[in-house]
Simulated assay, not measured.
Amino acid sequence: MTELDATDRAILAALRRDGGLNAKEVGDAIGLSQPAAYRRIKRLEEEGVITGRSLIVDRAALGFEVVVFLGVKLAVRGRASMADFERAVVAIPEVQLVQHVLGVYDYRLKVVARDLADFERILRRRIMTLPGVGDIESNVLLSDEL
Rank of each mutant, 00 (worst) to 15 (best):
D18T: 09
G19T: 05
G20I: 00
L21M: 10
L21W: 00
N22L: 06
N22M: 08
A23F: 06
K24I: 11
E25C: 05
E25Y: 04
E25M: 02
V26Q: 08
G27Q: 09
G27A: 10
G27N: 10
D28N: 14
A29T: 04
I30F: 08
G31L: 04
L32E: 08
S33T: 03
Q34L: 12
P35W: 12
A36Y: 03
A36C: 08
A36V: 03
Y38S: 15
R40E: 05
R40T: 06
I41H: 07
I41N: 01
I41M: 05
R43C: 10
R43Y: 04
E45G: 08
E45N: 02
E45S: 10
E46W: 03
E47L: 13
G48K: 04
T51P: 05
G52W: 07
R53S: 07
R53A: 01
L55A: 13
L55E: 15
I56A: 10
D58F: 12
A60V: 14
A60S: 12
A60E: 02
A61I: 02
A61E: 01
A61C: 03
L62M: 07
L62Q: 04
L62F: 03
F64Q: 03
E65T: 13
E65M: 12
V66E: 02
V67R: 14
F69S: 14
L70V: 12
G71C: 07
G71R: 09
G71L: 10
K73R: 14
K73T: 14
L74Y: 06
R77H: 15
R79T: 07
R79S: 09
R79C: 00
A80N: 06
A80R: 09
A80F: 04
M82P: 00
A83G: 04
A83K: 08
D84F: 02
F85N: 00
E86K: 08
R87K: 14
A88L: 04
A88V: 03
V89A: 01
V90C: 02
V90L: 04
A91H: 02
I92C: 07
I92N: 02
P93M: 13
P93V: 11
E94H: 12
E94M: 09
V95L: 00
Q96E: 15
L97I: 14
L97P: 07
V98R: 08
Q99N: 10
Q99F: 09
Q99E: 13
V101T: 03
G103T: 02
V104C: 00
Y105K: 12
D106H: 10
Y107R: 05
Y107E: 03
R108H: 08
R108N: 09
L109D: 05
K110P: 00
K110F: 06
K110G: 10
A113D: 08
A113T: 07
R114P: 05
R114V: 08
L116V: 07
L116N: 07
L116T: 07
A117L: 10
A117R: 11
A117E: 15
F119W: 05
R121K: 11
I122W: 09
L123G: 02
R124H: 13
R124T: 13
R125N: 14
R125I: 03
R126C: 04
I127F: 01
I127Q: 01
I127T: 04
M128N: 11
M128F: 13
M128C: 14
L130Y: 05
L130H: 01
